[in-house]
Design a protein around this nucleic acid. Structure first.
Length: 652
RNA sequence: GCUGCUGUAGCUCAGUGGUAGAGCGCGUCAUUGGUAAUGACGAGGUCGGGAGUUCAAUUCUCCCUAGCAGCACCA
């Protein structure tokens, strides 16, 4: 047969297909359809994958040409090209800067640079201006595939060692793709736009500068990272910036002050001084959890705060976490040496001590042991964050001692338990992550295989397909993490459920089986809220301070409109208090407008105003937080209604 | 812990090489007002801590400390 060019058949979204010469690029395909499409095209989706317009197609495929109207590819390319354009701008302004990597992230992108001088906030404006110039130049974007040696030589000659290292880290003989935005070049997987002018000039913004370790390794160079956000159009950018502004108002640190919940001070970094309002939330939550746990078959214990290092050595924590423990040394008069203790950083070893008292039978299992355990961890200074990441906190901790056969059922029960609690507290959705064996760990691979398999199986049996978090498990076992997000979308692990075959071994826990022999129990570490501190922080941000009535620290303010109503106000407050509602009188000599404003800012859910009319009719004027409307209700009715609202959900 | 930024009245923030200012809040007085700020007057600060430079430091330099953003860490 004579030599002929191979043909490929491309199928379009409408189901029609057309034949092209093999090696045809999506750009050529677009041009073959319409020149207007060729102009508007930004990329293609080929067999479901995002494809550069310049990448040749060698086999039959499905194809869709993307334009700026296609949100997903458009946003992806805008952000990705902006990363390159920003890097080009930075190198044009400061040629001694070295470039590293610049990926697309949620809402935008970042790029990491190595430069002697620090970028200043003012520099962001300068860079933005240069980026706009580059966009206006409408420079062509080109791409070529290079072999490894050529690429390495290229970057060595340019004095870009980070790029050389990146290439060396790319596995095997994978071809390397090079991109040019005008004359500026970067190593990049792609795809990219056709020219810089396809990036909208006004739908993005540089946000901040921060440090970041090269390749995420704290032993390596600290680079300077510039973050940007980008969207399809100006309106979306505006909406995003507006959202951030609104989110800042929900920050628990701001609301904590405004609602007078707690404070922190220099003498006790990372530790909370709870004020009456905050402590009300805390105790309300604790009372609720205590009831739930009792109903869930847990026994509650309490264990010491200061514990000799011997126990931590036995558990393995001394070896692995000593730097993160608060050490307490005590000189004892007649002792040969100082006694060295640590504030407990967690409760598990203590719970095993309680378990180990007396003989346990298989009939005692599963033994569910709970403690509101106060812990102290010397967290790195940079990790502290309001009350969400602290050095002194209390876990709603629990350890379930059980047999291997009981793991699955106990896991399923816990997931159901946690879901109920989260729902009661206003969290319908949460993400679940599965963390498997870390590099630094105790226990044999065989034990880990068993633990991971058991936990995963139980989770799936509970109808949850967790997101995989490789290598993030605890040193003694795999973890299930229940993650909630704060006002600006940062993830926080709250609940956790962990399988542990290691600690019972190290601390010699056992039980007598039905065979009359000693056996090792499995330990399940679990916390529902995680810590009260973090959970309350999340709770405040989730509800923007407008907490569910039953958990709100201040529930009702009864405000007088005229002083002739004062006696009646006190009567209303007394009636509410009598049924367990947290009510306070406000009979200050102030106008009702003033009182309403002040208590609204204080996030009081219900304001009951009383004037001459209410006194006369034995009613109250009800104003609920967030509503402009008021309504008049009889005293007896509102007392009944608020009594019900104040009842915790588990008691309804 | 690392990089950068910040720390002035209870809060939010201005300001200056010659020991400080606003608004809100707080106190007093007047006002009894119907659903997000009534008015007048008044009190309140070793300008995060220490050292240095200087005739003089809240201001400039260095160290420490705490906070903020991100990274790293998170039993």
């Amino acid at each position: 047969m004579a030599l002929e060019v191979n043909r490929v058949s491309l199928t379009f979204p409408d189901g029609n297909s057309r034949d092209y010469d093999a090696g045809v690029t999506p750009a050529e395909v677009a041009a073959s359809i319409a020149s207007s499409l060729a102009k508007k095209a930004i990329s293609a989706t080929v067999n479901g994958a995002h494809h550069d317009l310049q990448w040749p197609i060698d086999a039959d495929a499905s194809i869709a040409i993307n334009t700026m109207k296609d949100e997903e590819p458009a946003v992806e390319l805008i952000r990705h090209d902006l990363a390159h354009i920003m890097a080009r701008a930075v190198q044009e302004i400061w040629p001694d800067t070295q470039v590293t990597i610049g990926p697309v992230i949620k809402d935008g992108w970042y790029y990491d640079f190595d430069r002697k001088e620090s970028f200043t906030p003012e520099d962001l404006g300068v860079i933005e201006k240069k980026m706009k110039e580059i966009i206006n130049k409408r420079d062509e974007v080109r791409t070529e595939v290079w072999d490894r040696a050529r690429a390495i030589k290229h970057y060595e000659d340019l004095g870009e060692p980070y790029k050389v290292e990146l290439i060396n880290a790319i596995p095997g003989d994978e071809p390397l793709r090079m991109y040019w935005h005008g004359d500026w070049q970067d190593l990049c997987r792609g795809p990219h736009l056709q020219h810089t002018g396809q990036v909208p000039g006004d739908s993005w913004k540089l946000m901040s500068i921060a440090g970041a370790y090269w390749r995420g390794d704290s032993d390596r160079a600290m680079l300077q990272r510039i973050y940007g956000v980008a969207f399809q159009n100006k309106e979306q950018l505006k909406a995003h910036l507006n959202m951030l502004e609104e989110a800042a108002k929900r920050d628990h640190r701001k609301l904590g002050r405004e609602m007078d919940l707690y404070h922190m001070q220099e003498e006790a970094p990372g530790q909370v001084f709870w004020h009456p309002n905050g402590w009300l939330i805390y105790t309300q939550l604790q009372d609720y959890m205590r009831r739930k746990q009792r109903a869930g078959g847990y026994v509650e214990v309490n264990t010491p705060q200061v514990v000799d290092r011997k126990l931590w050595e036995a558990s393995g924590h001394w070896e692995k976490y000593q730097d993160h423990m608060f050490i307490v040394e005590v000189d004892e008069d007649h002792a040969r040496e100082k006694s060295v203790n640590a504030l407990k950083p967690m409760n598990c070893p203590c719970h095993v001590q309680v378990y180990n008292q007396g003989m346990k039978s298989y009939r005692d299992l599963p033994l569910r042991m709970a403690e509101f355990g106060s812990c102290n961890r010397y967290e790195p200074s940079g990790a502290l964050h309001g009350i969400m990441r602290v050095r002194g906190f209390t876990q709603d901790d629990g350890h379930i001692f059980c047999t291997e056969e009981q793991i699955e059922d106990e896991t399923a029960q816990f997931i159901a338990f946690l879901s109920e609690v989260y729902k009661d507290l206003g969290f319908e959705n949460f993400s679940v992550k599965f963390s498997d064996r870390p590099e630094k760990r105790s226990g044999s691979d065989e034990v880990w295989d068993k633990a991971e398999a058991a936990l995963l199986k139980a989770t799936r049996a509970a109808g949850i397909e967790p997101e995989l978090n490789p290598g993030e498990g605890a040193f003694y076992g795999p973890k299930l993490e229940f993650v909630l997000t704060d006002a600006i979308g940062r993830d926080w692990q709250c609940g956790t459920h962990q399988v542990d075959f290691v600690l019972p071994e190290r601390l010699d826990a056992n039980y007598i089986g039905s065979d009359g022999e000693k056996h090792r129990p499995v330990m399940l570490h679990r916390a529902t809220l995680g810590s009260f501190e973090r959970f309350i922080g999340i709770l405040i941000e989730e509800h923007a301070g407008k907490l569910p009535f039953w958990i709100a620290p201040r529930q009702v303010v009864v405000a007088s409109i005229i002083s002739d109503a004062d006696d009646y106000v006190h009567e209303v407050v007394a009636a509410l208090k009598a049924v367990g509602v947290r009510a306070e009188a406000d009979i200050r000599n102030e106008k009702i407008n003033y009182k309403v404003r002040e208590h609204s800012l204080g996030k009081v859910p219900v304001i009951l105003a009383c004037g001459a009319r209410e006194v006369e009719e034995r009613t109250v004027s009800v104003r609920r937080l967030g509503e402009k409307q008021t309504s008049v209700t009889s005293l007896t009715e509102i007392v009944t209604e608020l009594e019900k609202s104040a009842t915790p959900p588990d008691l309804l």
